[in-house]
Design a protein around this nucleic acid. Structure first.
Length: 925
DNA sequence: GAGTTTGAAACT
DNA sequence: CAGTTTCAAACTC
């Protein structure tokens, strides 16, 4: 559609502007523009997420970063893919902003609007939405300044009313509508909240907004150059701008920027950049806040603390973004660290709203930044650069690597946690949160990676560190590595730190294998880690990237989220089968634990076992394999009986779910938003490739990246879930009807996103994850209660909170579309279709675009069946499919997509020395 | 905190 | 692809 073109333009413009901005802000390398392209292309070509994007990454990273910020809002991941993501980035930002808002609503709002504006231009509604949400939040905040969460809830609720469950996800829930409305006018957004019913009108508004945004963006690109100065002015504008924003997305962007001075560059940058900026801003925002006008009030110590909690991943994200924005930033950023632009005042920042970002910054700054000049940068592979917009969402984290999840899990941490249902539920929530976080993280990583992962160190590190290193070397490493001292395994190594960051306890793998949760999640090890001889640090980016590449070469999906969310299917008759919303991509292989312990990845992720599991004696409380199988069979039967071509195909063949098919998980009731499908690399990727328009029959393909979804739904089930689900269902139904009427079926949107995501994922774009994750998060968690909790959680200090919150936000932002789609009407509202579709198309890598391409077969499901939906009509297909999908299909969402190693540098000083590296490399060799 | 168990990851 | 080994988390005491 238009978006594509616009996006492309914006990208270029952004890149240029961005570079200019970066240059202005910091002397940082100018690479950004070039970087974008090359990285992106490279990324596409290479798929390997890890690959160093460097220059381009910067751009992508920026995008990604942007998204990451969003992520922060939710955590990692995701996201961001190139232009598309860039556009989205704003959204992410917004999410982050939201996060911050939670902490400090006022401040965040500022960001949000800006982001919205930016995002609005290109990016997709998703991001935009987020940003808008922020704006909305402001309004909400205005209404209820005290509780940011409340605001969030409102958003969440608005879109879906229900979705919030995921709370964190709620962010995701931001529906385009909201976002759009937000943009157009905060008032509108408010009205949205007020009148959920008015979605249609909202949608229209949203559409208009998007258009405006696009226009603005274009205009902005030219304008952006002025950035810094403008930014400041913009910042002032932001507050006022909300209304203006719609008019001048650029201006708005600037506004967002203002908060974070860093934004300035963003302003310069086209939307994509903006989004990136937003993240950066978030980080910067703290600083910006300091600088910044609105946010000043924000600094709440608590918030800052909370932010810190988010830190690791958040930081990473933040870092990533900043870098991205800054771009070449690394240098500048490094020198300046977070603030390359303004963020500098990390501390303050953290305190401030955007605490999430801030926290990240601050935290990162404290943790990572302090240690690392660039600590901020997450590890994003160049890939992301390409399509950060979508991918933006964070890297992977997207997915749920269990690791990421685990990380996120830090129980409680998850902001979401708040929800607390039963303990089990609680866990689930946590998981969700974690997932969301992870997703966010992944997104952020993606972004960050692209940005950060510039090969600072030229370490030779052979990518392969083969398994066996000389013990001696290792020892040396350990010695070198401060970490080595190790904190002993903190119980659950994975357990999140107080911050919520998960920490690993690797002793022999140098944190360069998937054994390492941090590495697997695409984040750098941080202080809390008790690892020895850790190479998973920013200092060793090269090594990390290489290693990642190697691993990915072996298994493209190695860093893809492990958990995919399955959307429940709604039969026309209204029956819901969904067993569990989420499924483990590979499935577990438990023999003794009966899938009742965390040894089981499915259980750990709070998802039920599926046909893909080879577990024995499965008793997974989240869903036993047998049940799942039975359900699928039933579903397939139904589909057949129903005769819907789509349903039949899908059901029959693999029982695969079309993305659209289900928004909700019947079981959970949780409205599973049709998350974007994320294709995972490699195997999964193939499946995932389904892309937006298509749905891959294969279960895996179905995976949408739902960060939180899986768990949340279930959790919801238990207590509030039912009610929520019911409501959600109703809403969904309504939505569907609405969508149908409009053409914007949720599914369509979803598909689009999914396509992007999938593409991203396929491509290994870190960004991809972001999408999914976001979407998922929003959708899954949609429950209001959760949302509230989440919001609060987000507020909570510490990575955990941040992550969760961030993740949620991220999810929401990225996911937004998803959630909206799934749960909320907002999705419907998204007119975006055209735009989104256009954007999607544009943004989405060719692969993604190849909707028709069946993508990869999923393990479980027969790969063969892919729905051959007409390539284009994604929207149409989606719609149709969506309707159909709703009926029959199941969808899986990749919760976390960390496909990329978003490595967020955990900034612990731990780094191993160069010698260690060399040793390590040697060992590998 | 040490030791055991578990299952994923890595390797053959 | 299957089998084995390695690894780190999860768990138990």
């Amino acid at each position: 559609m238009d978006s594509p073109e616009t996006t492309a333009k914006t990208n270029t413009a952004v890149s240029s502007s961005f570079s200019a901005a970066t240059a202005t802000t910091t002397a940082s390398s100018t690479s950004s523009p070039p970087v974008q392209e090359s990285p992106f292309s490279n990324f596409l070509s290479n798929l390997s997420p890890i690959k160093p994007v460097k220059g381009s990454h910067g751009l992508q990273g920026l995008l990604g970063l942007n998204s990451p910020p969003l992520v922060f809002t939710s955590p990692h991941t995701n996201v961001p893919r190139e232009t598309g993501f860039l556009k989205r980035l704003p959204c992410h930002q917004s999410p982050s902003a939201e996060m911050s808002q939670n902490e400090d609503g006022s401040k965040k709002f500022a960001d949000g609007p800006l982001a919205l504006e930016k995002s609005g231009s290109l990016l997709q509604g998703g991001l935009v939405t987020d940003t808008w949400k922020e704006n909305d939040k402001r309004s909400s905040l205005q209404v209820q300044p005290t509780s940011s969460s409340a605001c969030v809830d409102e958003y969440l609720t608005d879109p879906v009313d229900v979705d919030c469950a995921s709370s964190g996800y709620g962010v995701n829930t931001y529906t385009l509508q909201s976002s759009v409305s937000g943009r157009t006018d905060s008032q509108k957004t408010l009205s949205k909240f007020d009148d959920k019913n008015d979605r249609v009108s909202k949608v229209d508004v949203a559409v208009d907004i998007f258009r405006e945004a696009e226009e603005n963006i274009h205009g902005k690109a030219t304008r952006d150059i002025k950035t810094n100065e403008q930014i400041e002015s913009n910042s002032s504008l932001d507050c006022a701008s909300k209304k203006r924003q719609s008019e001048n997305s650029s201006a708005q962007n600037a506004g967002s920027v203002p908060r974070g001075e860093s934004d300035c560059p963003l302003q310069l940058l086209p939307e994509p950049f903006q989004t990136l900026e937003t993240y950066n801003d978030s980080l910067e925002n703290a600083g910006a806040i300091a600088h910044g006008p609105d946010d000043n009030a924000m600094h709440d110590p608590e918030a800052s603390k909370q932010q810190r909690g988010m830190s690791r991943r958040c930081l990473q994200f933040a870092e990533a973004q900043p870098k991205a924005t800054v771009d070449s930033t690394n240098p500048s950023i490094n020198s300046n660290d977070a603030t390359s632009s303004r963020s500098s005042p990390s501390l303050v920042e953290s305190e401030s709203l955007d605490s999430s970002y801030v926290d990240l910054n601050a935290a990162s700054g404290k943790r990572q930044l302090a240690n690392f000049p660039q600590p901020m940068t997450p590890m994003f592979p160049p890939r992301y650069t390409g399509k950060s917009p979508l991918t933006v969402s964070k890297p992977s984290g997207i997915g749920l690597h269990l690791n990421s999840i685990v990380n996120a899990l830090p129980k409680g941490r998850g902001v979401t946690v708040g929800v607390k249902l039963a303990s089990a539920e609680h866990e689930v929530l946590e998981n969700k949160a974690s997932i969301s976080v992870s997703s966010l993280i992944s997104e952020s990583f993606d972004d960050t990676v692209s940005l950060n992962w510039l090969p600072r160190v030229d370490h030779n590190t052979t990518p392969h560190t083969k398994r066996k290193f000389n013990s001696e070397q290792i020892d040396s490493f350990e010695e070198f590595c401060p970490l080595s001292p190790k904190k002993k395994r903190k119980k659950s190594s994975s357990t999140v730190d107080g911050d919520g960051c998960k920490r690993c306890n690797c002793k022999k793998t140098r944190c360069l294998k998937l054994y390492c949760d941090c590495f697997a999640a695409g984040i750098y090890c941080a202080e809390p880690c008790a690892c020895q001889g850790c190479f998973n640090r920013p200092e060793y980016e090269d090594t990390v990237l290489e290693t990642r590449q190697q691993i990915e070469s072996r298994n493209p999906l190695a860093f893809a989220p492990k958990i995919v969310q399955r959307v429940a299917e709604f039969a026309d008759d209204g029956n819901h089968f969904t067993p569990s919303s989420g499924r483990h991509k590979r499935g577990c292989n438990c023999k003794k634990s009966q899938c009742l312990k965390k040894y089981c990845e499915c259980y750990q992720a709070n998802v039920g076992c599926s046909s893909g599991c080879r577990c024995e004696g499965c008793k997974n409380i989240h869903g036993m394999k047998e049940e799942y199988v039975g359900n699928e069979e039933i579903m397939s039967n139904r589909a057949i009986s129903e005769g819907t071509s789509d349903a039949k195909l899908e059901m029959v063949t693999n029982k695969r779910d079309f993305l659209h098919a289900e928004l909700y998980d019947p079981r959970n009731l949780t409205p599973l938003t049709p998350s974007f499908q994320c294709s995972n690399h490699g195997k999964d990727a193939s499946k995932s490739r389904i892309l937006s328009s298509r749905y891959v029959p294969s279960p895996e393909s179905d995976l949408t990246i739902l960060s939180s979804s899986a768990k949340s739904p279930r959790s919801l089930k238990n207590s509030e879930g039912n009610k929520m689900l019911l409501e959600a269902n109703k809403e969904i139904l309504d939505v569907e009807s609405c969508c149908e009427g409009r053409d914007y079926s949720d599914t369509d949107i979803v598909d689009q996103f999914s396509s992007r995501n999938s593409l991203v994922g396929l491509c290994d774009f870190p960004p991809v994850p972001g999408f999914p994750s976001m979407a998922v998060a929003s959708s899954g968690s949609s429950r209001a209660t959760d949302c509230t909790n989440v919001s609060r959680l987000q507020l909570c200090p510490r990575s955990g909170n941040l992550s969760s919150g961030g993740s949620l936000r991220w999810r929401s932002s990225p996911v937004t579309p998803m959630t909206q789609l799934g749960g909320t009407k907002s999705l419907q509202a998204l007119d975006c279709d055209s735009r989104l579709s256009g954007i999607m198309e544009d943004d989405t890598p060719e692969i993604l675009k190849d909707v028709s391409t069946p993508i990869k077969s999923v393990k479980v499901s027969s790969p063969s069946h892919k729905r051959v939906s007409p390539p284009h009509g994604h929207a149409n297909e989606l719609r149709s499919s969506s309707s159909g999908a709703l009926k029959s299909g199941r969808k899986f969402i990749l919760k976390a997509v960390p496909s990329f190693p978003p490595l967020t540098p955990c900034i612990d000083s731990k780094g191993s020395t160069d010698q260690e590296r060399s040793n390590f490399q040697e060992n590998k060799q």
